[in-house]
Simulated assay, not measured.
Amino acid sequence: MRSLVSYAKHAVESRSGLGVLVLAVGIVATSVLPGSAQQAAPARPSAMSSADEIQRFCTNIADPARDQRYLLQKQDLEKLQADVNDRIAVLEKRKSEYQDWLARRNDFLQKAEAGLTDVYKNMKPDAAAPQLEKVNPLLAAAIIMKLPAKQSSLILSEMDPAKAAIVAGIMSNAADPTTSKEPT
């Protein structure tokens, strides 16, 4: 094809009759022969039509593709929701177990505290003081506060003055109405 074009240019430049005749024959021959330049020309429109065809294909599958994507996302979300629901169920079970344990613990502590207070209530102050010096000052203060005032004062007078001061400080802070109920 390229040689035919270059020959046609040469023929036109030389303006020979024979060149123009050969050019005309070449044009007719290329339009008739299979695989000629005329048949190559429709390749461009087919390229355009293939681009149009691709565009139409993409447009036609856009909605089903979007629907499929949404379906997959919905399935993922449902799976995640099921996992969350399972974890919530486990947490609820553990919460109820903890609340049961806490209720039993609090019942035990109330019974123990009442029994412990009764023990110290029946002890002589000079015997109770050394024992209360050795326990946690918060516990000692709680026990002494539940005892009658006369017995509490006798026990505190028998305690080491430094430990008695700590216990008395805790007791006064517990009785202070301006003390916050919430721990900080």
Rank of each mutant, 00 (worst) to 15 (best):
S3A: 09
V5Y: 14
V5C: 03
Y7R: 15
E13A: 08
S14N: 13
R15T: 08
A24W: 04
A24V: 14
V25E: 08
A29G: 06
V32T: 06
L33A: 11
L33I: 05
Q38F: 14
A41F: 09
A41H: 04
P42V: 05
A51H: 09
A51I: 10
I54E: 15
F57P: 05
N60H: 11
N60W: 12
I61H: 07
D67R: 10
D67G: 10
L71Q: 15
K74E: 15
K74T: 15
E78K: 01
L80K: 14
Q81C: 06
A82G: 04
D86W: 07
D86L: 14
I88R: 04
A89H: 03
V90A: 07
L91S: 10
L91F: 05
E92N: 10
E92S: 11
S96E: 15
S96W: 11
Y98N: 06
Q99Y: 13
L102P: 01
R105W: 06
A112D: 07
E113H: 05
A114V: 03
Y120N: 01
N122I: 05
K124H: 08
K124T: 09
K124R: 09
D126N: 11
A129W: 02
V135P: 03
N136P: 05
P137W: 00
I143H: 02
K146Y: 03
L147I: 01
L154S: 06
L154A: 07
E158F: 02
M159F: 00
D160W: 03
A162S: 13
A162V: 06
M171K: 02
A174V: 04
T178A: 13
T179K: 04
S180F: 07
T184I: 15
T184E: 08
